[in-house]
């Protein structure tokens, strides 16, 4: 009896020591989970999730303060990836935060622009170039399509232009050939 208790206690102490040692030995700096979540988020910095950009949203998810389905630009696929990472069930996108849209970039009608710089201040990724009383223009390659520049514009000269599919951007579609499609069966 005593021997058994001693053995169990010994094992407990040994495992405790091992755990303690590994907690020190394998300590990870920073918040790796938030990093990983941030890597999945689309970095549009649009704030549709209700946070001030992707990183704060990632941190909120990591702390368990925000749900994973608040990011419309990430779409259902983004939700699925987050669910995979966090080991939770994927859920449908929360439509109150907006619906996914085709990827677009902002376009400034340069005839109408009055050079007020309000959009420049709103752009989260500094993708608008221009100066006060100078015409502004969007650096299309750096625009994330967040639409944050639309509300401040006093003359409504900014429109969102969907990115059209052209040859260099064309991609192969998922082949639709399996017999399953014939019947609309739900079992995958």
């Amino acid at each position: 009896m005593l021997a058994a208790i001693l053995v169990m206690a010994g094992i407990a102490v040994a495992i405790g020591l091992a755990l303690g040692w590994s907690a020190i030995r394998f300590k990870v700096e920073g918040n790796p989970l938030a990093e990983k979540i941030d890597a999945i988020l689309p970095q549009t910095q649009c704030g549709q999730c209700g946070f001030l950009g992707c990183r704060p949203y990632a941190e909120a998810i990591a702390k368990g303060e925000a749900d994973i389905n608040l990011c419309p630009p990430g779409g259902e696929e983004g939700v699925k990836k987050l669910a995979d990472l966090l080991g939770v069930e994927p859920k449908p996108l929360d439509e109150t935060h907006g619906a996914p849209k085709p990827k677009s970039v902002a376009f400034i009608d340069e005839q109408t622009c009055i050079g007020c710089t309000l959009c420049i201040q709103a752009c989260p990724v500094d993708a608008i170039s221009g100066a006060a009383k100078q015409m502004h223009t969007i650096i299309a390659a750096e625009c994330t399509g967040c639409e944050l520049c639309l509300p401040p514009c006093p003359v409504d000269c900014i429109t969102m232009v969907p990115i059209a599919e052209d040859l260099p951007h064309w991609k192969w579609k998922h082949p639709v050939v399996m017999l399953k499609q014939v019947s609309g069966d739900s079992s995958a």
């Binding site: 970095q43 549009t44 910095q45 992707c54 990183r55 989260p124 990724v125 500094d126 750096e142």
Partner: peptide, 16 residues
């Protein structure tokens, strides 16, 4: 490509 674009956006946002 999307990942590169996202990385660029993150970098620019962080710099901003």
């Amino acid at each position: 490509k999307d990942k590169r674009a996202a990385d660029l956006a993150r970098e620019r946002h962080e710099f901003r």
